[in-house]
Simulated scan of single mutants.
Amino acid sequence: MNANFDSALSAAHAAAANQNHPAGTLYVVATPIGNLADISLRALHVLSLCDTLACEDTRHSQTLLRAYGIDKSASHWLAVHQHNEAEAAEEVIRRLQAGQRVAYVSDAGTPAVSDPGARLAWQVQSAGLRVMPLPGASSVTALLSACGTPAHDSSGFVFVGFLPSKATERGHAVEVLAQEPRTQVLLEAPHRIEALATALGVLGERPVTVGRELTKQFEEIATVAAQDLAAWLQGNAQRTRGEFALVVHAQAQERAAGSDNDRLLKILMQELPLKTAVKVAAEISGEAKNALYDRALELKANT
């Protein structure tokens, strides 16, 4: 046990022992993304109570639990990761039907958010069994809470997660991302962060907040223009290390509207004469004809 947590289990049992934690239930347990102190008292109680601990990496999770003074024998552990999730879910269901309490943890953070666990939870619920979430640390909400939002952004956010690793597919994904005016949250590994930064450069001046090593000793949060993100990473060798969460901030209202009008004009001009396309676009969008006509000429000249 880590000496800093020698009283944590006692506090956890005192806080949660009288709460209802039914048998035959899958407990989806969030664990720290870096700072061990971010574990919840309820999570500690359930992790010590459970009959089976299903996890993404048994060695990693054993080390984590031992830091809190929880030591499970080999029979308590079950590996459930992205390569065996469907098959392992059948074993989890069998144990739940036998009346066991099963806790599932991923390597860090909240399971099933760009981590294994989603298929497991789905199959357990489909079998008519209960899934109970134990909320906690998440890099997504951690970064969103710290990066703030500009005044024009009131539309919420879209969770994207990891973009494809192959360059061509990643480029197509960024093209789709560029058309989304709302705030978007991405995740990335250290060995791909520079490639992602280069790909996001096409977003120009659109602000991006990057969170590196969130909750850890060398945590860093910075907001830069998308076109400057690659240079920001290169400005310090340490900045390409660690796990990353990124927020692509919402487009300004006027820029988003302009992008929508461009798409509308392009579609109409493929089927109609320019003046007719402008007239129809003005009726649909409510924009002034003169401004749309000037923009249509620019678009035509660039095709």
Rank of each mutant, 00 (worst) to 15 (best):
R295G: 02
Q270F: 02
S61Y: 05
T223I: 06
M269D: 04
A112R: 06
L299T: 09
E205L: 10
P133D: 07
F162N: 03
S114T: 11
L268C: 13
L196I: 03
L186P: 06
A88H: 04
D115E: 08
G109S: 06
V131G: 04
Q19V: 00
D71K: 14
A142M: 03
A127D: 13
K300D: 15
R295L: 08
H60Y: 02
Q227L: 01
V160D: 02
S138K: 10
T63Q: 14
E243D: 08
V208T: 01
V29E: 13
S145K: 10
V105R: 03
S154C: 13
M132G: 00
P111I: 13
E87T: 12
T276E: 15
L41H: 08
V105E: 09
D262L: 03
T110I: 08
P133T: 04
H76S: 15
P190E: 08
D262A: 06
I193P: 06
T303G: 14
H249Q: 13
Q125L: 13
V124W: 05
A245H: 03
A74F: 02
A301I: 02
N84L: 11
K166T: 14
T58W: 09
I70R: 06
L78F: 09
A195V: 03
V210I: 15
A231M: 01
I221E: 01
A14M: 09
M132Y: 05
T198H: 07
G69T: 12
Q227E: 08
R263P: 01
R130G: 00
Q100V: 00
L26Y: 11
L233S: 04
P181L: 07
G242K: 00
F244Q: 02
V278E: 03
A301T: 07
L47V: 12
L9S: 06
V280G: 01
A225R: 08
L144C: 10
R295H: 12
S145W: 05
R206D: 05
A231F: 00
V208K: 00
E271Q: 10
D228Q: 13
V92S: 12
L144G: 10
K266N: 13
S165D: 11
A281F: 05
E254N: 14
E87L: 12
A231S: 12
M1H: 09
Q123W: 01
S165Y: 04
R119L: 15
F159E: 04
L229D: 01
A288C: 03
A30S: 15
H249F: 08
A74Q: 15
C55P: 07
G156A: 14
R59H: 08
V278Y: 02
V92R: 10
A54M: 09
L272Y: 06
L177H: 04
L26D: 10
V105N: 09
E243P: 07
A281Y: 08
G211C: 11
A226I: 01
Q253D: 15
R42F: 00
V248L: 14
A252M: 11
L272C: 04
A12C: 05
R192K: 11
A189D: 07
L53D: 10
G201N: 04
V113D: 07
L64A: 05
L229Y: 03
Q270L: 10
T209W: 00
I33E: 01
A222E: 09
S139P: 00
L196S: 06
F159Q: 07
P111Q: 13
T276K: 12
V80D: 07
L53M: 10
L65I: 02
L203M: 14
V278I: 07
